[in-house]
Simulated assay, not measured.
Amino acid sequence: MTQQSLVSRRLSSRATRTFALVSVLFVTPFIATSSANAQVYTRAFGYASTEPGAFPTDGVLNDPATEDGALPARLRRTTVALTTTEAPGTIIIDTGNTALYYVLGGGRAIRYGVGVGREGFTWSGVQTISHKAEWPDWHPPAQMIKRQPYLPRFMAGGPGNPLGARAMYLGASEYRIHGTNDPSTIGKFVSSGCIRLTNEDVTDLFNRVNVGTKVVVLPKNGPHIAARELGPAAAEISVRPGLTPARPAVVTQRAGRQAMNIPVSSAQY
């Protein structure tokens, strides 16, 4: 009986090891594929993946040291010397240099690094801020859904929302200046025409501007703005308090009311 028990335990041990090996062989490709799919979603469509667990944490979104520290020096918020005929309070977007300037007056401006439209989706012209929202909901416009039918029809504002912590809507167009749930896209040509900043930077800009603020968007291949750095913007001018608590992100595929649902061809640039 003792010898049979020993043989039985050995067979059981071998079976357990075999099962574990087979599990690894089957599960590993699945994990790799899921990760690859999330990366493809992010690269192809300019938004962070909507897969659970793929969103940045609140800490990453709300910590300026984490966000700004990852950016190259030219994309970090700073005060610059800038010669312009635009009035103080105007926003100027240098598309080709992926930079946004908030004119302070007296030959100074605050420069922010931004992400802009990918190939075929950049634009230029003059707009005004028509609406401001904190932790905005996302209603992908009809043309975006037509190009990317798998997108959610509605996503509540929150850490996983592609619009990030703040949004400033431009006129009656479908374009916005907004935050992002993927700070790695700052400085790149990635969006469908919107201008994106880190959540920390978009909150800083949001607190400086009002509805009616003039926004000048320069063409991608036009002359670029020459500006000389003076120092951190935070030391030059103070603003109201920053980020407010975010609502949990909620995604639904049900049809909902479309926001700013105006075709690109009819947008007033």
Rank of each mutant, 00 (worst) to 15 (best):
Ile195Pro: 03
Ile195Tyr: 01
Ala165Leu: 00
Phe121Tyr: 13
Thr85Tyr: 07
Gly171Trp: 00
Glu86Lys: 06
Ser192Tyr: 14
Asp63Ile: 01
Thr198Leu: 10
Leu21Arg: 14
Arg196Ser: 07
Pro72Tyr: 12
Gly242His: 09
Ile145Asn: 04
Leu205Lys: 04
Ile145Thr: 08
Ser184Phe: 09
Arg153Ala: 08
Arg166Trp: 01
Gly179Ile: 01
Leu218Arg: 04
Thr79Phe: 01
Ser266Trp: 06
Pro141Trp: 08
Ala165Phe: 06
Val103His: 01
Thr185Cys: 13
Ala227Tyr: 00
Phe121Pro: 07
Ala259Gln: 14
Thr79Tyr: 00
Ser238Phe: 09
Gly46Ala: 11
Ala259Ile: 11
Val103Leu: 03
Pro248Cys: 01
Ser13Cys: 12
Phe154Asp: 15
Ser173His: 01
Asp201Tyr: 01
Ala38Arg: 15
Tyr169Leu: 09
Ile145Cys: 04
Gly179Arg: 07
Gly171Pro: 03
Gly158Val: 04
Val126Trp: 11
Gly187Val: 07
Gln39Leu: 15
Arg118Ala: 12
Asp137Pro: 10
Tyr47Asp: 14
Phe189Gln: 11
Val211Pro: 05
Pro245His: 10
Ile177His: 02
Glu86Phe: 03
Gln258Tyr: 07
Gly231Asp: 00
His224Trp: 00
Ala172Val: 04
Gly212His: 03
Gln39Asn: 13
Pro248Trp: 02
Asp204Asn: 14
Ala70Leu: 10
